[in-house]
Design a protein around this nucleic acid. Sequence first.
DNA 1: TGGTTCCGATACTTGACAGTACCGTATATA
DNA 2: TATATACGGTACTGTCAAGTATCGGAACCA
Lengths: 215, 215
Amino acid sequence: MTQPDPTIASAPKLGRKRDHTRDPEILDAALAVLAETGYDGMTIDMVAARAKAGKATLYRRWPSKAELVIDAVACMKKNMHGNEPLPDTGTLRGDLVAMIKPHSLQESDTKLQIMAGLMSMISQAPELADAANEAIMKPRTELNRVLMRRAVERGEISPDCDIDTISMITPSMVAYRTLMLKKPVDREFLLSLIDGVVLPALGLGHETWSEALSS
Amino acid sequence: MTQPDPTIASAPKLGRKRDHTRDPEILDAALAVLAETGYDGMTIDMVAARAKAGKATLYRRWPSKAELVIDAVACMKKNMHGNEPLPDTGTLRGDLVAMIKPHSLQESDTKLQIMAGLMSMISQAPELADAANEAIMKPRTELNRVLMRRAVERGEISPDCDIDTISMITPSMVAYRTLMLKKPVDREFLLSLIDGVVLPALGLGHETWSEALSS
DNA sequence: TGGTTCCGATACTTGACAGTACCGTATATA
DNA sequence: TATATACGGTACTGTCAAGTATCGGAACCA
């Protein structure tokens, strides 16, 4: 809907300093509660309490609970901390492994909890699916795609590979494992995904590694 | 919880013919409503109405809405129609492609809608995750695993392949696409998955096909 | 036919939460 | 300092659904 951009306050004229200064805190609180309890379990009072705001303040700014959540998801992308620079180790496997970091696992888990909380809403408002994907899944997919494209240019993998599909393998299977299997996504699992699925699918199978090692 | 097994009626003695005869219809209705509206949107009245039963009948049999749903999911596996025989075309690709059938796509979609409806509940009752997986995801994964193991025995693919992980690719990505992307899962998508991901990951890349074709 | 038991329907109670109204206060402008 | 505005807090209303209570009818058995 609207952005919590504090730079375009609409003519305050008199009175308080600025409009809607608390928006970011409120949206963050909404995402946190959403991740913890899901859309249906979440109440406006919970969000207000966590943001140390009054319930009325939320309704002055957003017309309904649904709009608040939609706005929170839409703003999530911007509010996410700037991505660290891409790894560049020289090999695709090195790059993929370098992306496994505790911070990264943590952030991924949080985002997926939010996604889980959104599910019941998504089935009724499919346009929300786009926004959620844009903010939650796409960044990860895009990262993989870039790394793989570089590997193609480097000559490491064939340009015939279906990179668009293969770059979705890890995000999909991580989501599956987190949301439905309720199993932890740790370094070991991701390594088995890289070595057992992603690299073989790109033509970098076990036999190829030994070739690479001996050369 | 308990099974709707009509064979173990507990001593009717006098009066009506048998106990809990309507259980299967009620559980089916519960799954249908669950798929359509999700757990939170689902009301006991909806289930009762769809099963042409009284609300009190449901509460005579299950102590709460949650227990009803848990029971419905647990019984889903048994109530599913016996699986058709496995395809056996001689090649793994042939087998995998043979499993793409309209009926199969339809069933898969229904199951995933149920899974979506369960999500909000799963985050609060992780033991339900196991049951849901057993009934919804595992059958499909298991099918793939069997086909791939046969391919290993046949010498078509290497025994070093991580079959356990690779057999989950298709189910995961179909779930991802249906639940989060809200895009249709059609024959074309599944073919691109088989040819672009699964077979390459098993060492049956494009180059291998031409070899196979020319031999 | 009479008695027993389950079923479908409906009316009812209760609690939770979305959304509203209002009040006292803090703060920034003039 | 005076004033207008947004804020935090809280009390209120209306709705909706979970769960309960009850009743008439139907099926079954002796």
